[in-house]
Amino acid sequence: MTRTQEPRDGSDLRYPPDVATLRGHDLSFVDTGEGPAILFIHGLLGSHENWTHLVDRLDTDHRVVIPDLFGHGASAKPVGDYSLGAHAAILRDLIDHLGIDRVTLVGHSLGGGIAMQFCYLFPERVEALVLVSTGGLGRTVSPLLRSATLPGAELVLPVIASSWVRDRVETVGRAVRGLGWRPSADASAAWKGFTSLSDAESRRAFLATTRGVIDPGGQTVNALGRLTTGEHIRTLVIWGTRDRMIPVGHAERAHEIFPGAKVVLFEGAGHFPHLEQPDRFASVLEAFVHE
C-alpha cells in the first residue's frame, strides 16, 4: 500500500483505501504492512478512520487490514442483510480476497459482536481476539441507541440529521470551544458518526444494522451460551470504566465465553478507549499480539 505524505481532508488518514467488489458491492479497506494479519472492525457509525492512528505502531511487523463495513464510511450501502452474520461473512470474503488465512480480530462495540460471530462461523480463521467495549455480552445499552429501534425513527432521523440541525449544533460547539471547552473523544467520535447520516442510504443502513442487534428494551444478540469454541481462542477484553454506551460490568461476562480472557480496564475512559487513551491502547494491544 502506498502511503500519502499528508492526511487527506484534515483527517488522520495517511493510508488511502483500496476497494474490493464483494458479492456485487464495493467494500473500502486499508491494507498495509507485512506479517501476521490483524483485522480491525469498527463500531456502529464508525469507519476505518477510528483505527488508522494505530497503524504506525503495528504495520512494521504485522499486516493491518481495516475495512469500512457495508453501510459505513466509503463502502457501499446496499439494501439487504446487515446482521452480524452477514458482516462476518463479508469479512471472511475480504480476507479470502487478500489471500489471508488467519487473522487476529480487533472489534469495537458492534464490531466486537461481529468479531464473536466470526469466531462462531469461522473459528479456523481466528488467531486471536480483542474485544473493545463490545456488544453481545448483555442486554443493557444506551437509551439513545434503543430509541433508533422505535416505530417512526425513520421519520425522525432525517430531521435531526439534517444540515440545518447540524449547522446549529456546530455553531454552538464552536462558541463553547472558544470559552475553553474541549469535547471528549467519545463526544467527538459520536458526533462524527452522527454527521455521516446526512444521506438516505446511510440512514437506511444505520437503522437496519441497529434493529438487527437492538430493540426498545436493549441488545437482542447475546454470545453467552452460544459461542462454544471460546475456550480455544486467546482473548483480550478492553473497556473504559466510564462507558455510557455499554456498561463496563459486561467486561467480566467475557470469562463465561472465553475462560482465559485477559480483561484490561481503562480508568476514566468512555466507550472509545482506543481514541481516548491511544498510547496505552496501542501498548496493550502490541503486547498481546506479540505474545
Rank of each mutant, 00 (worst) to 15 (best):
Q5L: 15
R8L: 15
S11I: 07
D12M: 12
R14A: 08
R14K: 15
V19R: 14
A20D: 12
L22S: 10
L22Y: 09
R23Q: 15
S28V: 04
V30A: 07
D31H: 11
T32G: 03
E34H: 13
P36T: 11
I38L: 15
I38A: 07
L39D: 05
G43A: 08
G46K: 01
W51L: 02
W51S: 00
D56T: 11
D59K: 05
R63V: 07
V64A: 04
V64S: 02
V65C: 12
I66E: 01
I66L: 14
P67D: 03
F70G: 00
H72Y: 11
A76G: 13
P78N: 11
V79T: 15
A86V: 07
I90W: 09
D96Y: 07
H97L: 12
H97W: 12
I100G: 01
G107H: 04
L110N: 00
G111P: 00
F118T: 04
F118L: 10
C119Q: 04
C119G: 06
R125E: 06
R125C: 05
L129W: 03
L131W: 02
V132I: 15
G135L: 03
G135N: 01
G136A: 08
G136Q: 02
V141M: 08
V141L: 09
R146E: 02
L150T: 11
P151I: 11
G152F: 04
S163P: 07
V165W: 09
R168N: 13
V169P: 03
E170T: 12
T171W: 14
A175V: 14
V176F: 10
L179V: 06
A185S: 09
A185L: 06
A189L: 00
T195N: 05
T195Y: 04
S196N: 09
E201H: 13
E201C: 09
A205P: 02
F206G: 02
L207V: 08
T210V: 15
G218N: 03
Q219T: 06
Q219S: 06
A223L: 13
L224D: 06
T228H: 15
T229F: 07
H232W: 10
I233D: 04
T235M: 05
A251H: 05
R253S: 10
H255F: 06
H255D: 04
I257P: 01
K262M: 09
E276N: 08
P278S: 10
S283K: 15
E286P: 00
A287N: 15
A287P: 06
H290L: 12
H290T: 14
